[in-house]
């Protein structure tokens, strides 16, 4: 990150994509999808507040670098194929 007063812009100008910030470390519960049961309705993708679910061939692909483990995906899944597993297990 630029530091000296010659290197910084005159006012904070934000240009770096926040993807560089790994929020996965906040997670206490990890979502795991049983893709055999997944009906690919993409509710999990649609409601993810952390934009951490990609649309995969067989079901959701989690971005565990960013997923905070809120559990919304598991909650909205109509076939209950997503389980929240404690991170320490």
């Amino acid at each position: 990150m630029p530091g000296t007063i010659d290197e910084i812009p005159i006012t904070p100008i934000n240009t770096t994509n926040s993807t560089a910030v790994k929020t996965g470390g906040w997670r206490a519960f990890r979502p795991i999808c049983d893709t055999d049961k997944c009906i690919k309705c993409w509710s999990c993708w649609k409601f993810c507040p952390d934009v951490s679910i990609a649309i995969g061939e067989d079901g959701p692909i989690y971005d565990y670098d960013h997923c905070k483990g809120c559990g919304i995906c598991a909650n909205v899944c109509p076939v209950k194929c997503i389980e929240m597993i404690p991170e320490n297990k």
Binding site: G3, T4, I8, T11, P12, I13, N14, T15
Partner: peptide, 14 residues
């Protein structure tokens, strides 16, 4: 983005 939050290690330089 213009005018965001800046942490103490940088604010003083601004």
């Amino acid at each position: 983005g213009f005018g965001s939050l800046v942490m103490p290690p940088q604010y003083m330089e601004f």
